[in-house]
């Protein structure tokens, strides 16, 4: 039973963290090594595979033409979906998306949407009738903790890697012209996720730390270091001071990680 193992390890992890140490030798504010590959799926319009330690997430994007939402007739559509694929963890099951995969997709979505990473107003072909739809599909391949940061980073790398066909409207019909253009990317949201264990905050929890954590806090920062999305998870709580401290550390971590994707 996983929970018995957890009870045994819980004490060890918690005691170490009280002394500012972690079971895998990291400092409280250290990320695991991050590896990013882009363009790994040729049939997708854009793709990226991100590894944070042993956590591995693949994101593919597809671009299509469809109808806009009635309240935003002149804007393209962005949809994010996440699949916790059963091969990624013994705890993932087949079937319709559960609350964890829906929450994951919505956190990734919120970072991209609220930072206005994709200029959706440039994705309109015919107001109210035809717009470009960008599908971002998050595919978790190996779960070793902190799926949020891995997924959001892979999603950012994938949209930056996305090439969309050149569309034009001819006599009310959508036609593809030869060639591709990149997606209009305006911002680079990167999250930083914290776990609270034994009253202490650590970044980038791996699986065993997630199993013993009291609560989780994800803050997504845009390219200017402003906060564009936050999500607290887990059944524990934070003090106000812990949140304000996390915001300062998260801003720095997010800026460091952004440099791995955005090379200027």
């Amino acid at each position: 039973m996983a929970s018995v193992m957890v009870k045994v390890k819980q004490k060890q992890i918690a005691q170490l963290i009280a002394h500012g140490k972690r079971l895998d030798g990291r400092e409280p504010n250290d990320y695991r090594p991050i590896k990013i590959e882009v363009g790994v799926i040729e049939k997708a319009e854009g793709s990226a595979r991100v590894k944070i330690g042993n956590t591995e997430v693949l994101v593919g994007t597809k671009v299509d033409v469809g109808e806009p939402f009635p309240d935003t007739p002149e804007e393209g559509v962005l949809t994010v979906n996440a699949e916790l694929v059963p091969l990624a963890s013994p705890s993932f099951e087949t079937g319709p998306p559960d609350e964890n995969s829906i929450e994951l997709a919505r956190i990734v979505d919120r970072g991209i949407r609220e930072s206005k990473a994709i200029a959706t107003e440039e994705l309109c072909l015919e107001p109210g009738k035809k717009v470009i739809i960008v599908f971002i599909d998050v595919y978790v391949l190996n779960h070793d903790g902190n799926l949020i940061d891995a997924s959001a980073l892979a999603a950012l790398a994938a949209i930056m890697n996305t090439k969309m066909p050149k569309y034009e409207i001819v006599n009310g019909e959508v036609k593809k012209k030869p060639g591709y253009i990149p997606l209009p990317i305006r911002n680079y949201p990167v999250p930083a996720t914290f776990a609270k264990i034994n009253g202490k905050m650590i970044v980038d929890p791996w699986l065993e730390e997630e199993q013993v954590m009291d609560a989780r806090l994800t803050m997504t920062f845009d390219k200017d270091g402003n906060i564009c999305a936050i999500q607290k998870g887990g059944i524990g709580h934070f003090t106000v001071q812990q949140i304000l401290d996390a915001a300062k550390i998260g801003q720095q971590k997010s800026a460091d990680i952004r440099k791995l994707v955005v090379k200027e």
Binding site: I227, C228, V240
Partner: peptide
């Protein structure tokens, strides 16, 4: 104890 914290939008620290 803060038990829920979410945000969307744009805020400086």
């Amino acid at each position: 104890a803060v038990t829920l914290l979410q945000m969307d939008g744009n805020l400086t620290l």
